[in-house]
Design a protein around this nucleic acid. Structure first.
Lengths: 167, 167
DNA sequence: CTGTAAATGCAATGTTATAACAATTCAAGT
DNA sequence: ACTTGAATTGTTATAACATTGCATTTACAG
């Protein structure tokens, strides 16, 4: 992790109304759970809230640390369970490359998540990838493979880190 | 890892002339290194050979174990260094989802690797994904992100495991 | 042959993730 | 309310994956 802590307000490589998006995403998750009978428990809710607030890719142990401070689960499984729940239900994504988790930027969109990951500062931006555009699907079909989830991760340098490298 | 060890001859979800592809890939790596001045050392060569022979995604410690038996490096760094070399030079890919490595099925093709990963037996098939087909690239361009590598991983069930689940 | 850079050896440690089982909570049906 | 079964959470321990830092050796260019 070479670079300094990023400004949460400029994460995802672009500015936006962060306080608003946190509240909205949380409310969306809440109502989605209510509608489908999922149990949006305290730990799960708080875990999502943490991911939304930080608005960056966070390791499970990083989330765990925050939960511990509030007396919500003291051991790794507590964090992994909450995060797994969020991922399984589309409220968050797992960034395999970073062994980290990030709140979904397009909740409810039923999308193929695609991430731009800066190899210098580790910041992550979520993009959208069209499933139909992927040749993978054709290959899968012809080989009898049944795709359940696709993840796309692009590694490179974000704008700011490119400039830093030039200077 | 629920399922039994897969038959190396039917890996990648399809049959092929395995002995031939091992020899060919090894020779290709050899000449590529000779041409570009890379040092294809004993450990590196052997690591690639192991990946090619097994023809499946292998953990670094699994490769390490094999290397150890032959007196090539006794500690984790030996395996990680060899594998990193192979990945950096396109002879192998890293499957993030599995924390594992697999020999490249299309060496020299300068491609975007795409993998079909069975969540039951963990077998992996490499497909090809066209970079130009990815919407990610457009997003990246407009945000100033410079993509250096893209990875695509599709999770699901391979044919055999679907049948197993049905019965 | 010698200086330099790359590669390897090695020890220790850091980080991420899960297994296994007990205890508790929740909500549905009676 | 009470019971019951399923889901969730608590807890301990450990497995699995990965890196840092520094010493040593090797390869090759000059």
């Amino acid at each position: 992790m070479p670079s300094p802590a990023p400004d949460p307000e400029t994460l995802g490589f672009s500015r936006h109304d962060h306080a608003h998006c946190v509240a909205e995403a949380l409310a969306a998750a809440e109502s989605h759970c209510a509608a489908t009978g999922l149990r949006f428990t305290t730990v799960r809710r708080r875990a999502l809230e943490i991911l939304l607030e930080e608005h960056k890719a966070m390791g499970a142990y990083e989330v765990l640390e925050r939960l511990q401070r509030e007396g919500l689960g003291a051991q790794p499984p507590a964090a992994y369970r909450a995060l797994d729940f969020l991922v399984a239900n589309g409220f968050a994504h797992r960034i395999e490359r970073l062994n980290a988790f990030i709140a979904c930027a397009h909740p409810g969109a039923d999308h193929v998540p695609a991430f731009l990951i800066c190899r210098d500062c580790n910041r992550v931006a979520e993009s959208l990838s069209l499933p139909s555009a992927l040749v993978v699907e054709a290959t899968a079909g012809s080989s009898g493979f049944k795709i359940e989830r696709i993840l796309v991760e692009a590694l490179g340098l974000c704008g700011p880190c490119q400039q830093k490298a030039d200077s």
